[in-house]
Amino acid sequence: MQWLGLWHYWAVIILMMIGLYIVIARDNLVKKVMGLSIFQVSVIMFYVSTGKVEGGTAPIIPEGGHDLVYSNPLPHVLMLTAIVVGISTTALALALIVRIQEAYGTVEDDELNAIDGAAL
């Protein structure tokens, strides 16, 4: 059962798919943003889980700490950047949603399509 060591990835992928489901199946735009943030956290978790070393500790060197095993710090750095970009895009998406609400009076995807269809 060599695949048993992979269950972390699978759990993360299931989380990711719930996020994806919210993005494609729900009509409310704010709900879509929530789904997007679930998706984002799952991707971050996936990256961070590839950096884990069995028996390792957090990559902070203690005073006089020799022969310690550290987890891989590189995915952590990359994912820190990803979280920052994530909150920025979330804020921008929410600002766009507010403007859509003001212009159309709704943030439901199907109603927006109906209004746009009627205008054409």
Partner: peptide
């Protein structure tokens, strides 16, 4: 930058 950006975004969203 982050402090001021987050506060400004909050001002923009809440001020609306």
């Amino acid at each position: 930058t982050v402090t001021c950006a987050m506060t400004t975004i909050f001002y923009a969203l809440a001020g609306r």
